[in-house]
Nucleic acid binder design. Structure first.
Lengths: 146, 146
DNA sequence: ATAACTGCAAATGATTTGCGATCGG
DNA sequence: CCGATCGCAAATCATTTGCAGTTAT
């Protein structure tokens, strides 16, 4: 009893716009973009479609920290950088993949299946705005001197 | 004009309980624990205290994916494993740190400050329950055959 | 024909905030 | 004393869901 996916007009446009973007938008960012072509579309439809497309592996839900989920039109596994100031996410390419031997990881009895390498940085826009002073060692938080 | 932190009774207990735990609770999990000692404490107080303690680097807000934020009483940088089934987080120790040369990372103009290595797996409790069948390659999603 | 899908509105879940009362330094 | 912090309730933000009408196959 496998249910089948229909290629609705909404789904087609959502997929097309997500794939066009080099950035990795949140659901509501994509909603704003898609709304230009389909003014009557609802945000719930965007959420639902991102879900089914990610479930089928046509796109991917990016596993980064941050309150909002982000989506990537490229289903291939690859790494990302997240801007600590604005949350924007971009692709990060490593010249060589880090070798991690799962068997050597002591993980309190967890069965390890994979890992996720997420870079943290400042995006070009936020660097130029210079709206930050310094970071605590590992933080997602910006302190403004006052 | 730096404002100073007061060591209130609530803050003291929250910190004490978080540090006692080897696990990395969400704010509301910690709230339930703390409530046993301070029955009148409010969840908002737990959130506010976790914020100031993390801001000061006394504890850390764990940067893993997942809807709820988790906290670690150990402020030292280290890696974590996240259970793909229940979301539980534990420490992960690597016999040797992966070497990542930031300069070799092509990241669309982002200034790279650090990285975050998060392992994905199944915790002992969920393994023994066996409530899952298989995973898609990189997913946070569990498919149940029906 | 009919199950998958849609838009809308209301529901949920996590976290944050305004406020008047309280307390620590 | 007085500003940081508290408890409480309401507000906000992201995401999900119920439902009745619509559409792709």
């Amino acid at each position: 009893m496998k249910k089948m996916m229909r290629m609705t007009h909404q789904r087609e446009i959502i997929l097309e716009e997500l794939k066009r973007l080099k950035t990795h938008p949140t659901a509501d960012e994509l909603y704003e973009i898609v709304k230009k072509r389909l003014p009557r579309i609802s945000l719930a439809t965007v959420y639902r479609n991102l879900d089914v497309l990610a479930e089928l592996g046509i796109i991917q839900r990016i596993e980064v920290s941050g309150r909002q989920k982000r989506f990537d039109g490229n289903p291939e596994a690859h790494h990302h950088v997240r801007c600590l100031v604005c949350g924007r996410v971009a692709d990060a390419e490593l010249s060589q993949e880090p070798q991690v031997n799962f068997d050597s990881v002591k993980a309190n009895g967890f069965k390890i299946i994979g890992f996720n390498l997420e870079f943290e940085g400042i995006c070009p826009e936020c660097v130029s705005k210079g709206k930050f002073k310094f970071f605590n060692n590992k933080a997602d938080t910006i302190f403004n001197e006052t």
